[in-house]
Write a protein that binds this DNA or RNA. Structure first.
Length: 832
RNA sequence: GCCGAAGUGGCGGAAUUGGCAGACGCGCCGGAUUCAAAAUCCGGUGGGGUUAGACUCGUAUGGGUUCGAGUCCCAUCUUCGGCACCA
């Protein structure tokens, strides 16, 4: 299509102007309210994709809108700059350092962002790979270490053979690496962990104060996985120990007919030593341990086990029950041991059937007539009911029995109430180079010692050869590894692992507030002024990972006394993906649309407008070339209208225009009314609903209305009104299509930027309709419509309705049962 | 298996608190303009029915509540997402 305006020239011109005038610099004026809007920062891959265009366009509309609304706006951008791709690129190309690669990419992505006309305050820019930044990442690690929130532990960890590093639980999806999709292996390694479990409860409770999508809170809630139950001790005669189990169903304890240990359970060795079939048992354990996690933890896979030869005593019945080892019990949850109640748990039931263990029914379902019999059951029953075969507790409902038995056990010292979480501590060690070094030193004499704060940052060394050997690259640098112990001054070795990049991104939103602070990560006072983030925007894929870690860090930083806020992001908009042909855009599918190409062919304003108009922000968006044409057509339509009528309207000083409703004729009133209706709609859609698609459609309606007015009143144009409406139109359009709005604004004779002008005020009186259409229904079906004065009384309205010809036709000879009047909307007559 | 979200014209989507279903855009059809086309401007556009109207059906399916349901309730189907031996 032909363009009527030269977007390339215009967009460049205003981008330059905005930069020179520092239009988007964060200003702190005390009489104005602060507003912090933030989009998730990108990994600097070098090229923006459509998903980026979408999230940054959304954030930019909000930032520009809030500025016009009179807020001091903080709208920063930065780079999640550590990570594997840089390292892999370096290995692949041989001679380029990850640092160079990363900074090159940052440069080109920044250019693309500027070409999109995004209104960032670039003075606040941060990059996590900048020593000035990771110095504080390391500082936080040390603070956590000092507060017992960081610890080193050897345990089986998730190992990605392709990325050659360990992964956090959150980074394992369906037993595959979330980055590269390789099957994750288990490895016994000594690694650093952050104690996120200390905050499990607060992370759950904190949801109450967050304006986040419910489904995201639910995802986090499931991930944290709180369950309330009892910790119960079962004596074991043979080894004079007690076996502790966790259960959420203490009410079923009389149905516990056997125990199961995870193969890794610490008692296993003691229990099986000297058993006649010890070798057989050891072989079984070996086999289970070698089973892939996936195979072992899938509910479909078979439940295999073996008898240990030992018995435990059910503390309620005093009966001996056998102890088994089985693959379906995991060391990682609870105590790694369970009491098995086959009658009421399907897993235990399957196992009992397989190994011919007794099944004892202890909960009688409410809706079952015959008595439940363990011997004849076909599957476990976990429905609600009352207790049977449970001695003195018989007849109690499940809920009542839980409390009664828990009280009893606590009194008798058999067990106590306990809360268990599914959430694990966060494993942050990575055996890779391009990350923040863990600032710890190992000394033979003094043990593990943190690097003194004055020595931070621990810089990444340059004298290494990057490779994928599975051994931390940093080990290669003698200069790096060999150091002296800060405590005793003796020879010592540095930690050679780097931190998970999710650590870097768990606090970046604080550094934007105070990026040049050399004394602290962020000043208390500035954090108080700007934090928490008012509006955060990003992809739903971070619902658990980044958003949970960031919340955890915020709470830790608060407890360190650095900030006051409990939560980092008051409000979060989870934006949907950009699809093409119903699929996520990806190189392998060959359905990628390059933003660069769209920018070149249509310009930034069109790209932004299309992507905001095509779908509400939280939903997935189907890319459409025809839709882009439509957006471009609309902007040209605005341009054409204003340029063609410039002579009429640019001589008018709108600030001196006072539109008086009473002086307008009907057509003018209608146009003026439409303007105010549009202001109201756009304001509400942007401010509260974040529905930019409907805001844009409202602006389109206003433009249609202007064309309509011009056509029907060509001989009698009210220039003052037209100029007034046109200026407001440009203000409404400015956050969405900032360049064309700026150009046209200046064409109208203004010297100041359109983005500095106050957002238009909506006038309720002007938006009011004199005449309204009321729908007439007979028995709920629309039969007629009438136009009446807007302030008509209910009585008068009814009167008018009943004399309508159509109404008469429908009610003739019928009995009127009632008449429902909804003021200003409809009248429904019910007849029989 | 469990939990959650969604399902509306040919397409993207709108309907915000239970009150005119389909705003706005795309596509398509017709008209104006043009030597012609593109672009632009104007009009039409859920299905059936009809010269036209009247009328009628219609928001995944089946039921329900209500004067009135895309919206609330119950059941079912489909799609997507999360969790998945969590004791």
């Amino acid at each position: 299509m032909r363009n009527f305006y030269d977007f390339t020239k215009i967009e460049k011109k205003w981008q330059k102007y905005w930069e020179e005038k520092e239009l988007f610099k964060t200003r702190k004026k005390n009489e104005k309210e602060n507003y912090y809007v933030l989009e998730m920062f990108p990994y600097p891959s070098g090229k923006l994709h459509m998903g980026h265009v979408r999230v940054y366009s959304i954030g930019d509309v909000i930032a520009r809108f809030k500025r016009m609304k009179g807020f001091n706006v903080l709208h920063p951008m930065g780079w999640d700059a550590f990570g594997l791709p840089a390292e892999n690129a370096a290995i692949k190309h041989g001679n380029i350092h990850p640092r160079e690669w990363t900074w090159e990419n940052i440069k080109s992505m920044k250019e693309q962002m500027k070409a999109l006309g995004l209104s960032y305050d670039w003075k606040k820019e941060v990059a996590t790979a900048d020593p000035d930044y990771y110095r504080w990442t390391q500082w936080f690690f040390i603070q956590m270490y000092r507060n017992n929130l960081a610890y080193k532990k050897e345990q089986a960890v998730n190992w990605c053979p392709s990325c050659e590093t360990v992964l956090a639980n959150e980074q394992v999806i369906n037993n595959r690496c979330e980055r590269c999709d390789s099957i994750v292996e288990q490895k016994e390694l000594e690694q650093w962990f952050l104690k996120i479990t200390d905050y499990a409860e607060e992370l759950l409770e904190g949801h109450a104060e967050l304006d986040w999508p419910q489904r995201v809170k639910t995802m986090q809630k499931n991930w944290i996985g709180k369950s309330e139950g009892l910790s119960i001790r079962f004596p074991i005669g043979e080894i004079e120990e007690e076996l502790e189990v966790f259960t959420t169903r203490p009410d079923t304890i009389y149905g516990a007919t056997y125990m199961v240990l995870a193969p890794e359970h610490p008692y296993v060795d003691q229990l099986i030593s000297g058993q006649p079939n010890e070798d057989e048992i050891r072989n079984f354990i070996k086999k289970v341990k070698s089973q892939a996690e996936m195979e072992r933890t899938s509910p479909q896979s078979s439940k295999d086990g073996i008898f240990t030869g030992s018995f435990a005593i059910n503390p309620m019945t005093q009966q001996e029950i056998p102890i088994y080892i089985a693959n379906y019990v995991l060391m990682g949850y609870g105590t790694g041991a369970i009491m098995a109640v086959p009658a009421h748990d399907q897993r235990d039931f399957d196992f009992a059937k397989k190994y011919d263990l007794p099944i004892k029914a202890v909960i009688q379902p409410h809706d079952l007539e015959e008595k439940l019999n363990g011997a004849t059951m076909k599957k476990a029953r976990s429905d609600d009911g009352y207790l049977i075969n449970s001695q003195r507790f018989n007849g109690l409902t499940v809920q009542k029995a839980f409390e009664t038995i828990a009280d009893y056990m606590e009194k008798e010292n058999i067990g106590e109430r306990k809360i268990n979480y599914r959430l694990r501590d966060w494993l942050i060690s990575r055996q890779r180079y391009w990350g923040a070094p863990i600032p710890m030193i190992h000394c033979e004499k003094c043990g593990t010692v943190p690097v003194p704060e004055k020595d931070l940052p621990v810089l990444l060394p340059d004298d290494v050869k990057l490779s994928t050997t599975g051994v931390s690259t940093l080990a290669e640098s003698k200069e790096f590894v060999n150091t002296t112990c800060p405590k005793c001054g003796g020879p010592a070795r540095r930690e050679i692992d780097t931190m998970d990049t999710f650590v870097d991104s768990s606090w970046y939103f604080l550094r934007y507030i105070d990026p040049n602070n050399q004394k602290l990560p962020v000043s208390y006072q500035k954090a108080k002024e700007w934090f928490p983030v008012n509006q955060y925007i990003g992809g739903i894929e971070h619902a658990i990972l980044h958003l949970l870690y960031a919340r955890f860090f915020t709470k830790v930083i608060r407890d360190l006394g650095l900030i006051e806020a409990n939560e980092p992001f008051s409000k979060w908009l989870a934006q949907g993906m950009v699809l093409k042909d119903g699929d996520k855009m990806s190189k392998s599918k060959g359905n990628v649309v390059d933003p660069g190409k769209i920018l070149k062919e249509y310009g930034a304003d069109t790209a932004r407008l299309f992507i905001l108009f095509a779908s509400p922000p939280e939903k997935d968006l189907e890319w459409s070339d025809a839709g882009v044409e439509g957006a471009s057509r609309f902007l040209n339509r605005v341009w054409r209208y204003i340029v063609n009528n410039l002579d009429e309207i640019n001589k008018i000083d709108v600030s001196q225009v006072d539109i008086k409703q009473d002086d307008l004729n009907d057509a003018e009133k209608e146009l003026h009314r439409k303007l105010h209706e549009t202001i109201e709609k756009v304001t509400e859609d942007v401010e509260e609903r974040l529905n930019f698609n409907t805001a844009i459609s409202a602006i389109m309606e206003l433009v249609n209305e202007i064309y309509h007015y011009l056509k029907n009143n060509s001989d009698n144009i009210n220039k003052e009104l037209l100029a007034f409406v046109t200026e407001k139109l440009l203000l409404l359009l400015a956050p969405f299509a900032p360049h064309i709005s700026e150009e046209l604004w200046h064409k109208l004779g203004h010297d100041e930027s359109v983005h500095r002008v106050k957002w238009p005020q909506f006038n309720k009186e002007a938006a009011k309709k004199d005449e309204i259409t009321v729908v007439i229904q007979i028995n709920g079906k629309v039969r007629d419509k009438i136009n009446v004065s807007a302030d008509i009384t209910e009585e008068k309205l009814k009167e008018k309705v009943f004399i309508q010809k159509k109404v008469k036709k429908y009610i003739e000879g019928k009995e009127i049962i009632k008449t429902i009047v909804i003021p200003k909307k409809l009248v429904n007559i019910v007849v029989k």
